[in-house]
Amino acid sequence: MAGKTIVVTSGKGGVGKTTTVANIGTALAKRKYSVVMIDADIGLRNLDVVMGLENRIVYNLVDIIEGKCRKQQAMIRDRKFANLFIIPAAQTREKTAVKPEQMKELCAELASEFDYIFIDCPAGIEQGFKNAIAGAETAVVVTTPEVSAIRDADRVIGLLEADSLKDIHLIINRLNHRMVKKGDMMSTEDIISLLAVPLLGVVPESDEVVVSTNRGTPLALDRGSKAGLAFQQIAARLNGDNVPLDTAQKVTLVDRVKRFIWS
């Protein structure tokens, strides 16, 4: 069966696309699926850094497209999982080095060899975006609960729908439950009522993400992390498993004790 090609996009920069790709890819690889992650952010690559594989880059995406190397030469195997690969972007080239048709061709070839192909889309809606969505059949839009990110996500969803990419899912990243309760941050319901696409999952705000990025070990491997767990559940839902969404906020032991004292 051909693999699924999924593009992770957002419009706005810095909302967590690369982190999402790294974590979902890792989570699926942990479950023994064969996964390749393509960094389509030519010129500003960071998927390699987040995965801790930046020292192993010899060839990159543009080299494959230009025929300077075979696909296998550019694919870098992950340190922990033998079934997880990344194809890094070129740092010294620009987005115009690749055309949408070429991306489509590459993704079609990879679909016969892998279960999952993830494309880490660059920010924006120009050439880089068009390249990234060309080969994909599914899109995961990442947004944070702030007006500017949601405005951009809405625009991107409109562009995806216009490009006939109708299988669109949403991830709300960096949700701070305390702020939502206080009314300082938009809630999940507010966001979905505006964007109107099915919710794949909510990832809570977490300091651990920065630490894991610096170390190059995705959070999905950390059992104790709430954000890591959220990514694992998202990966499971993407795979078709029935993992119910966490609508009520998990109350911790400390909160329970506080309520008892103050009631």
């Binding site: 405005r151 951009d152 809405d154 625009r155 505006l194």
Partner: peptide
């Protein structure tokens, strides 16, 4: 359908949108 951000609709008569008109 809903008009998403960035969509521009121009009509020289009336215009009916069966959905939302999102900001932008």
């Amino acid at each position: 359908n809903t008009c998403r951000s960035g969509m521009r609709v121009v009509s020289d008569t009336d215009c009916v949108v069966l959905g939302d008109v999102n900001p932008g």
